[in-house]
Amino acid sequence: MAKKIKKIDVPRCSGCEAFNVSMFCSLNNSEEENVSDNKTHNVYKKGQVIFYEGHVPQNLFCIFSGKVKIFKLGDDGKEQIVRFAKNSDIIGYRALLSGENYFASATAIEETVVCSFPKNTIDELLESNSKFALQTIKLLSKDLRKAEQMILNMAQKHVRERIAEALLMLKEYYGTDSITGTINTTLTREEIANIAGTSTETCIRILSEFNRDRVIKLIGKRIKVASVPKLLQIANIAE
């Protein structure tokens, strides 16, 4: 009994929202044609892995819709989330470009449609289109700064501050639901703990403290930020 697989169509790159905000914006018409012809797309269910840390990269991934977490595993196998990605973001490009194995793993945290571009197409672009390379450097510079900021917070802030900041980051990145006002993503308590670099138990305790103090409102798995100023104050963000 074959289960029916949901079919989702994606537009060509030129008609995609991601085209103008990603490094693909530097492509001319014929290059865009070539990239569009060579791309394939897949649907990933919640929890399905897009790529594994340590594997050899074959493709560059661009997220058409959905949400993805990027994480590394510690020595004892505990997850540390290093980044999130959503529609129009490009993932798995660092390993591909530097010729290394994947530095981290990527898993869909809700149903996600991902376009993939074969390695040789990207390599050709890098060699022939210098603007493409410069756009890539831009993206990397941004990622480096984000990573620097995250490690700094991890080293110098307390758990309470880090969880408050994680919530603010999630709110800003994913936006809020127009009806309920909750953050537009469902993460487990463990996943929030893995962003802030703490244990699940501590994360649960602090979230219920925030809930009690009316800083946030817990609605089942979803979280609503009740008071942004209070949360900013806890996160100790001066700016």
Partner: peptide
Amino acid sequence: IKLLCERIDYIEKRMVSIA
């Protein structure tokens, strides 16, 4: 690009250790 990739990789590794 390669240089920046290495830098980010190093920072992310340290991030896991610190956490």
